[in-house]
Design a binder for these strands. Structure first.
Lengths: 348, 348
DNA sequence: CTGTTAGCGCTTTCAT
DNA sequence: ATGAAAGCGCTAACAG
């Protein structure tokens, strides 16, 4: 087996090929190409080298470089293969920040059905494939266990302190409850994921606290973060009493289930205020007005990269709370945009 | 900068460390660990080596190995960061097949807004980061241009022949039209993506051909594969005449837009048969009965990997048509499951 | 201003 | 049945 596929044309140029063609030593080529600051080279020599490199489409061999430097310049972003679109925004933020700091990101998709413990990904580092791990999947159960022994950061999850990068879930709930106050709701429900999940727990605690302060009643229900979970939550919510004035929903798949369930029921006067903690482009197309809290997801990814690079470069690990401002977005249903609203907001 | 982060514990064991500890030469360790078939070792020597390797948690340095063998053992899966969930299934198929064939897959997410030409990813190969490219993003415009000069395969797109791995879109349309026939529809519409896209073109051609043979009328409309595109398609479709008896929709985001638009309109007697060419878990939650064609997506990914490895190992490049059987799935709306259907199918 | 040298960790041919 | 030695392509300390 050659390793050079058919049609690959000329063999790839190496440093030594350029050196030969330019009539200088490889080390000079290396220094010029990496523009070593501690180097003075005659302008024409430098030009000759750059010219040859360009002509031969020289690309440094990342393997050799990484082997020499004991540093791959790559980060692994381990994330579950979920349909929930929030992660692609986080990923984008991570990608951009990493690029600016001279790192590449390789995305490692983890099958959502069978999450593996983070330790299983440590081999990516010990095998020198990447310099560190951005772990966006870790469930509470899976996280426990010994220290990983390689640079790593957990995204959007808290646990054993020291490596966690999270957003300000409490602030998101504050926005939600602000809107509850605005529409004058007297009863609210929070439909969310399993209570073991840290973000879920933080949201429900804050919702209870704020509701108590405002004198509104609150119910918190938990189910898996799936369409079916959302459906089930709605059944349980409505079986236990009248529809609350406002409903917060923890994730997009659940929101699908909630809306589907609500849709088929007789609409009492005044639909509840629906608030999603995931923002997405499909929200205006679900047939109900939905308000969403737009979390600073890209910034979460970026902050994760920064924290990880800190560890890689030997600075001590530390937790991060992403404090970027978040937005409340009121999506009107697409049909409301077209036809004048028959039921204008009673609390303008 | 050390490259060893705090808390990383013992420095990683190298081959030479094991050799020392086991009292043999590195080359012997290498042969044992790779179980070189052309090797005979004394059982106790082998056991000693394996024992030390296990105790020290030895992991081979992928960099050094790849440098030596001029072969990284990794494939890049370049795919757009779309919300469309089909790609995660393709990815899964590719991952599994690659693992079985001794390759790793690194996923490279491409920002959906600004697709880069495939040539921009060739550097992943020329820099020895991966051995070949699985390109799942290539739009028609972007594909044109010179040969890449590195092993590569286009997934789900046809163009310059020789490197394309596609599914049997025509067979999917046959399933669609079978269902059209089953419900006795006399008029159908196909709402799909831009006509430049190869899969779209193949579906519309086949739809026209089959409809002509069946004597049913057909309209084909194109728009971007977004929610808004689907909304727009529906406006255009309904402005031009009565609602057709059956509507095929090319992608999930478009389906959202179509259903949202349909939902707000007065429901004429008998909703149209809605068929989606993307299958997804949310389909039962959209408030309308949707039939979907489940394409062999995992097999697409797997076939792509096989074709790519063929190229990497020096066999000639070739096109692939994935011919796995596909399924028609009838999703009833979740509410229909619970309450007996008030409008039973007129054509049982 | 530029060349020499050593070596990153591994595989593999050749020797013994 | 095992060891010796060369070398993958690059970088960086040291010479000159």
């Amino acid at each position: 087996v050659s390793g050079r596929a058919e049609g690959s044309g000329a063999p790839r140029a190496r440093l030594v090929d350029i050196a030969l063609a330019a009539g200088v030593h490889v080390s000079t080529v290396s220094r010029v190409l990496n523009d070593d600051p501690a180097l003075s080279v005659r302008a024409d020599t430098r030009d000759r080298i750059l010219e040859v490199a360009r002509r031969t489409h020289y690309r440094p061999n990342a393997l050799a470089r990484a082997l020499k430097q004991s540093r791959t310049g790559a980060l692994a972003f381990v994330l579950p293969m979920l349909r929930n679109p929030i992660w692609s925004v986080v990923e984008r933020g991570a990608l951009d920040r990493a690029a600016r700091r001279g790192f590449r990101v390789v995305v490692v998709s983890e099958p959502a059905e069978l999450p593996r413990p983070p330790a299983d990904y440590a081999s990516l580092v010990t095998e020198s494939r990447v310099d560190g791990l951005l772990l966006a999947n870790a469930s509470g159960a899976v996280r426990s266990g010994r220290a990983l022994g390689v640079p790593h950061v957990f995204l959007n999850r808290r646990g054993r302190p020291g490596h966690d990068v999270v957003m300000d879930e409490e602030a998101a709930v504050v926005l939600f409850m602000d809107d509850v106050r605005r529409v004058g709701a007297r009863s609210v429900a929070l439909l969310d994921g399993p209570r073991e999940i840290d973000t879920v727990r933080r949201r429900s605690r804050e919702a209870r606290r704020l509701a108590a302060g405002m004198g509104v009643s609150v119910r918190v229900l938990h189910a898996p973060a799936t369409e079916d979970g959302g459906w089930d939550l709605t059944d349980r919510l409505l079986a236990a009493g009248p529809t609350p004035d406002a409903i917060g929903v923890g994730s997009l798949p659940q929101l699908f289930g909630v809306i589907a369930n609500l849709r088929g029921r007789p609409r009492s006067a005044g639909d509840p205020l629906l608030v999603s903690f995931d923002e997405d482009g499909c929200l205006p197309y679900l047939g109900m007005a939905v308000t969403s809290v737009a979390m600073p997801l890209a910034e979460l990814g970026a902050a994760g990269v920064d924290a990880l690079i800190d560890q890689i470069e030997g600075r001590p690990a530390h937790d991060v709370l992403v404090r970027e401002p978040m937005l409340l977005i009121r999506h009107t249903d697409r049909h409301t945009d077209r036809h004048p609203d028959p039921n204008p907001d009673p609390n303008p």
